[in-house]
């Protein structure tokens, strides 16, 4: 479900699950935390492969962010329309850092 790659100093985790919902939320959280176990300092979560996110998926994402907050502040990118709507409704776009593309997200972290 998670594909990882490193771009310069940034770890990019691409979520490859078209529907990140209650049926997948637990597995998503576990896989993300496995990829983040080595505590990378700069991380991008690429959501371009996610076309729908429900509150369980959002809760799992928040859980992941809270678990890694002590060593990094992930930047999200690639939000599709339904995911953007979920972020807007829940105001997560004000809580989490969101960029348009992987390149923009990586650039924002590389500049830090």
């Amino acid at each position: 479900m998670i594909k990882s790659q490193t771009i310069g100093p940034v770890l990019v985790l691409a979520v490859e699950a078209p529907r990140l919902d209650a049926a997948l939320a637990v597995r998503f959280r576990e896989e993300m935390l496995q990829h983040l176990a080595e505590e990378p300092g700069r991380v991008v979560f690429d959501f371009s492969g996610v076309t729908f996110l429900d509150s369980s998926g959002l809760g799992a994402l928040v859980s992941v962010v809270k678990r890694v907050n002590h060593h990094c502040k992930p930047v999200l990118c690639g939000l599709q329309p339904a995911v953007r709507t979920m972020f807007a409704l829940t105001r997560m776009d004000k809580v989490l850092q969101v960029r348009g593309t992987v390149d923009e997200a990586v650039a924002s972290l590389a500049a830090e």
Partner: peptide, 15 residues
């Protein structure tokens, strides 16, 4: 009220 931004659950009924 909208649940806290960093809450891990509790948004369903609100949504």
């Amino acid at each position: 009220a909208l649940p806290d931004g960093m809450a891990e659950c509790g948004r369903g009924l609100w949504l």
